[in-house]
Amino acid sequence: MLTKRIIPCLDVKDGRVVKGVNFLNLRDAGDPVELGARYSREGADELVFLDITATIRRKKTIVDLVREVARNVFIPFTVGGGICDADQIDLLLRSGAEKVSVNTAAVDNPDIIKEAAQRVGNQCVVLAIDARRSQKSSEKWQVCVEAGSKPTELDVIEWAQQAEQMGAGEILLTSMDADGTRAGYDNALNHAVSSAVNIPVIASGGAGKLEHLYDAISTGGADAVLMASITHFGDVNIKQIKQYLAGRGVCVNL
C-alpha cells in the first residue's frame, strides 16, 4: 500500500536553511546539504528545498545546491523558489532534482505548467500554492504570490483544479495563516483541496506537535505532510513521527 509521506521542508536563503513565522522573522537552521543528509538518514520520505533568496544571483546558487544535494541524498527531493520557465525546470531536473515546484510564475503564465508537463512529465511538476483565508468568507481561500506578499483574485480550489487539468502532478499547499505558528495545519483548506483534485496534495504550514500531522492526514485528507520548525530545531525526529503515525493506524514507510 502507498504510504503517507513525511517531508521536511528546507527554506534556503543565501545558502543557509532558515525558518520564520508567518513568512517573517527568519531564524538560522543550518547547512542545507548537511540537514538534508541528516533527514535522509533519519528516514524522511522526501525533501523540499525552497530558495527564498531575494536576489538575482539565486539562479546559479540553486543549481549548485541541487547538484550538491543530489550527490549526498538518495531520496527524492523537490526544488522551488523563483522558477520562471520550462528551461529552468529542465536544468534543475538534469542537475538531480526529482521534482520542481512553481508558484508565482504559474499564476503569471499558467502555460508554464502545460509546457513543463509535456516536456518532463506531470510527475515532475509541482504546483506550490500559498493560500490565505479570505476575509469575506471563512471557507474560501485566496492565492498569494511573490513569497506570499501579494494577494491575487484567484480562488485556491479553482486554481488547484485548473493546474491539475494543465498537467501539474502534485500540489504543495501552504496555509499562510498557519505557517510557522505550530498551532496545527489548516485542515478545512487541506480537505477542500484534496477532495477537489485527483493528484496528491502535500499539506504545509502549522505543524507543532505529532497530533497535527495525524489530523492533516485523517481530517485534511493529505497524501503527505510537510514540516519545518518542529524537526529543524530538534523537537521531534522523523522516526518518532512515523512511529506515532503507525501507532494510530497510518500506513508509513517505517
Partner: peptide, 13 residues
C-alpha cells in the same frame, strides 16, 4: 486506472 490518485507518487511496498 483513475480509481486512485494519479500520479502514483511516493513509497509503496
Amino acid at each position: 486506472p483513475r480509481t486512485q490518485r494519479i500520479p502514483h507518487m511516493g513509497w509503496n511496498s
